[in-house]
Nucleic acid binder design. Structure first.
Length: 342
DNA sequence: AGTCCACTGGAACATGGGGTGC
DNA sequence: GCACCCCATGTTCCAGTGGACT
């Protein structure tokens, strides 16, 4: 039933972008100077998750590479590579310039020097989830390199600006800003239909089912495609000819649970212990969390460190925090609680 | 209004693991 | 082997915030 599984994967870049003509033209025009061998401005692409920010950025960059020789591109996920060192390392790695760089003993400034000396070609650096950077000063490093064009992808513009220093804010404010809104249900339907057409055998999924997926995903294309992938994968394993309505019911929960599991897997044992306490006893305040945590683990971390864990898990959308001060309470985010397929 | 206190999060500092160069 | 360097992680300190209580 699955004809081309790649089409249903999260990072797949389609050959045509649906319903994003204005954004596509805008971002293309920002990178346009590169076609004449000139430096391009920084672009900031913002919008909620699943609005196609990464997809659009990769698409535009790939098309640029088709047009112009000697343009390289690199995509850095700042969630995983959240330190200045890791970002610079990842970029050099993609450019094949890390042979003699050692993670532990190469000064960061040397990485910047190395990038500055790299003048084989112009490079487009896509910084995905740039608001997750622990130390945004790496943006400053990259700005100082003429051969590099930067596309910053973030959920919210203000979240990004609030964390960088004044010099950088003024530079970023003058950057070109591409805003992406959530897809309407019928737009998301078109996207899902295009993926189903390329990725699945004909007749595997009905129009009505695609509308239901689009509805459940509430404008989030990543989630919609995830639901379709989950349903198709299960149908395939159980050797059905088509996706049944029963399969679809579980698929939304499965897709969300998969996203959550990936976040859970990235936690350290101490972070996991804190998460489990909130799962078992939540909603619960920070003091009780720390008391229970201290009882349960050997060599417990301090309150301050547990606070850092809690705020990180909140960012990961694993925990909900309610209240601001003494009334603060944490509880877990339950994927099965959010808009199931009707 | 004033005080207390739990909580938050930034900043500086300390520690430890892993690597280099002599 | 050892001094040194770098990054990641955790700790200490502290100012700011806001609810509860007097």
């Amino acid at each position: 039933m699955i004809r081309d599984a790649r089409v249903l994967r999260a990072g797949f870049v389609p050959s045509e972008i649906e319903h994003r003509d204005a954004e596509l033209n805008h971002l293309s025009s920002v990178l346009e100077p590169i076609t004449n061998g000139e430096p391009a401005d920084t672009a900031i692409v913002t919008g909620p998750s699943g609005t196609g920010k990464t997809c659009l950025s990769k698409f535009v960059t790939e098309r640029l590479q088709e047009e112009v020789l000697d343009v390289k591109s690199t995509h850095v996920n700042c969630w995983r590579n959240y330190t200045r060192f890791r970002v610079l390392y990842q970029i050099l790695d993609d450019l094949g310039k890390t042979i003699d760089i050692h993670r532990q003993s190469t000064p960061r400034d040397e990485l910047v020097d190395r990038l500055q000396q790299y003048d084989d070609s112009r490079t487009v650096v896509i910084l995905d989830e740039v608001d997750q950077l622990e130390d945004p000063s790496v943006l400053y490093d990259l700005h100082s390199i003429e051969n590099i064009a930067i596309i910053c992808i973030a959920n919210e513009e203000e979240q990004l600006f609030s964390r960088v220093d004044d010099r950088l804010v003024s530079r970023l404010r003058s950057s070109e800003h591409v805003r992406m809104d959530r897809y309407h249900n019928d737009q998301l339907y078109d996207i899902l239909q295009a993926r189903a057409k390329r990725g699945l055998d004909p007749g595997t999924v009905t129009e009505h089912q695609l509308y239901r997926i689009a509805d459940a995903a509430a404008g989030d294309a990543r989630l919609g495609i995830g639901i379709l992938r989950s349903a198709a994968g299960k149908a395939d394993r159980e050797e059905y000819e088509e996706i049944t309505d029963d399969l679809l019911l579980d698929a939304a929960t499965d897709a969300r649970a998969q996203i959550k599991q990936r976040s859970l897997d990235s936690l350290t044992p101490h972070q996991r212990a804190v998460y489990d306490i909130v799962r078992k006893h939540g909603p619960v305040g920070p003091s009780e969390i720390h008391d229970r945590y201290t009882d349960e683990v050997d060599d417990p971390r301090t309150k301050r460190t547990v606070r850092t864990y809690l705020s990180k898990m909140e960012q990961y959308n694993l925990l909900d925090a309610e209240g601001t001060s003494r009334d603060r309470e944490y509880s877990i985010v339950d994927p099965s609680n959010t808009s199931p397929i009707q």
